[in-house]
């Protein structure tokens, strides 16, 4: 009996202690908990790797911040930010007017077009006419999902929304989708993988729509967190100027990912 009481007491203590474990907090960078190569993906040792992780390291070193990665479900990133579970979003999130109503962003750190991928044997153009009566896959609450709703909705037979892009890609390979609409670089990573090469190819970039596709990708921030915003902006500018950005980007891309 005593042992049970002890366990119960211990449990209560552990519960309280783990909640109370506050420390000089590092900046928590929220990363979508999914493979999103080449930007952020978990490797076989459980670490997060990719271009955005390198960017984070460079920015945090420049701004003299201690940063740590906190994986959160993609569609939970903004709630996690507003409820202070994380301090910053580092997850290829585009700066859009819609999101700016709820959260704030740093300056952009990269920008890429959006493009369509489909099965090799099918040939169609990257616009509404090409997608007629097709099943289109997108990741939920992305600019691509919104773009699809705005421009493709009437043409396609169905828009399927996936929790992670990786699942949409998998369903494209499995023949459950006729096309996937996503960020050009990430789609390239998929199309260059073994699975992607076997099944699919790129159908082209879509026409730009700045109102939906936004003005590039930045760190997501809580509104009013201007101190952190200032530091991040200064650091992004600094690593652009001193060549650090170019240096680590070379490991991933043969073009300037910063965009225009």
């Amino acid at each position: 009996m005593k042992s049970i009481l002890k366990t119960v007491a211990l449990a209560a203590l552990v519960g309280v202690a783990s909640v109370g474990a506050a420390s000089a907090a590092p900046i928590k960078m929220g990363v979508a908990a999914e493979p999103y190569p080449p930007f952020t993906s978990p490797d076989a040792s459980g670490k997060w790797v990719g271009w955005e992780v390198d960017l984070m390291n460079a920015v945090c070193a420049e701004a003299k911040l201690e940063c740590e990665i906190t994986p959160i479900a993609w569609d939970g990133l903004i709630p996690a930010l507003t409820s202070k579970k994380i301090d910053t979003i580092l997850s290829s999130m585009s700066i859009t007017d819609e999101r700016l109503k709820t959260i704030d962003f740093s300056d952009k750190y990269y920008n890429t077009p959006a493009s369509l991928a489909g099965p090799k044997e099918a040939s169609f153009t990257a616009d509404a006419a090409g997608l007629k009566d097709k099943i289109l896959g997108v990741q939920v609450s992305t600019i691509h999902a919104e773009y699809a709703q705005k421009h493709f909705k009437d043409a396609v037979s169905e828009i399927k929304e996936y929790q992670t892009l990786d699942e949409a890609n998998n369903d494209l390979a499995a023949g459950r989708l006729d096309a996937v609409f996503a960020d050009a670089i990430t789609l390239d990573a998929f199309l260059n993988s073994e699975q992607g090469k076997a099944c699919c190819d790129k159908k082209g970039d879509v026409a730009d729509d700045p109102a939906v596709l936004g003005a590039g990708i930045g760190f997501g921030l809580r509104k009013g967190d201007d101190e952190l915003k200032g530091k991040l902006n200064a650091a992004i500018k600094a690593i652009r100027d001193n060549g650090t950005y170019e240096k680590f980007s070379k490991n991933y891309f043969d073009f300037d990912v910063y965009g225009k």
Partner: peptide, 21 residues
């Protein structure tokens, strides 16, 4: 979680569209 659109999925859509938690 496997793209069936049930009650939960509709509400998820609302959450993503409106950013309300």
């Amino acid at each position: 979680t496997i793209t069936v659109v049930d009650t939960y999925a509709v509400i998820s859509k609302v959450r993503q569209d409106t950013f309300l938690t």
